[in-house]
Nucleic acid binder design. Structure first.
Lengths: 163, 163
DNA sequence: CTGACTGCAAACCCTTTGCAGACCG
DNA sequence: CGGTCTGCAAAGGGTTTGCAGTCAG
């Protein structure tokens, strides 16, 4: 990993370094290696895995630097978090086919229905990854309630625990 | 909430109680109320929210009972967890349109591409929930590697932290 | 009645934060 | 050189577990 064999990954790395520098953020050795790792990986490994992957090249790197670097990317709009973010675990007891709307600000998840979306044609590549138990659409956006709040508070320091 | 006004919710509650009883699991007051709450809610509230919602009817219920009840539903195949499960937070630094395959056993997330899926027609109901920043397909299944392991180990006690 | 279940509290683990020294620009 | 960044360690918050009393069947 991190060898930059794929021109696609190299292009993404360029975009990241350019954006980071033009944001007036320092491009440290640690950050560069973490960037390399995350663009080289089509899976989206959890933080611990990224940490272990860069360790050989950054023997003294700490886990919190990995977290901080990933959130930095997030704050610059260069990365998103996967799944309903933070707060707590969520369960879905709705067994019938349905889809999810996820608010990226408050983590709200709402079901919506759409028969045409219930039978999506998946590319053959998917079956090579594994079996398919379910396929649904996940829409990300800002819910009406949060949109209202944004208008009011205009802007505030994003203190990490509330993207 | 929990008033069973919707016949749909009532039907789902019936299915849950039936399945739970036929599994030889005791149907306690606490469990029943938690079931009521989760089928009555089209959003998928986090555990804390469910806890607060049932508290008026179950003044002494504890948070861990809510957790245990939700995992019970999960183990009986009556509920799924939302998003890439447990382990750690995951970030996605891929800015181009793509979709996700999530392994329900190991939490692996892999990107896949499919131009037809990049421009899905969303129902009008979605825009009433909030703005749309992104819409992608999330496929859930068991990845090839986990499928191999399952064949080997046949079955083992699901100790919670490894669904 | 009896085994399963709940509530409590402590343990666990992932994530974040405060601070002093290190380093980029 | 100065302000930012890192590493360390400790705090923080969500989730799970062990145990003794309680309750459904």
């Amino acid at each position: 990993m991190g060898k930059m064999r794929h021109p696609e990954a190299e292009r993404r790395l360029d975009h990241i370094t350019t954006t980071v520098k033009s944001a007036g953020v320092k491009l440290t050795h640690q950050r560069l290696e973490i960037f390399r790792e995350i663009v080289a990986n089509e899976a989206h490994p959890d933080v611990e895995t990224i940490f272990r992957a860069v360790r050989p090249r950054l023997p003294t790197v700490s886990l919190d630097t990995v977290y901080r670097t990933l959130w930095l990317l997030h704050d610059l709009g260069l990365a998103t978090t996967l799944g309903p973010q933070r707060d707590g675990m969520r369960f879905d007891a709705n067994l019938s086919p349905h889809h999810h709307y996820v608010c990226v600000r408050c983590g709200l998840v709402r079901d919506f229905h759409s028969p045409p979306l219930n039978s999506l044609r998946l590319p053959e590549a998917v079956t090579r990854i594994g079996s398919v138990v379910d396929a649904h659409v996940e829409v990300r956006g800002v819910c009406a309630q949060c949109a209202r709040k944004v208008q009011v508070s205009a802007q505030k320091k994003p203190t990490r625990r509330t993207p």
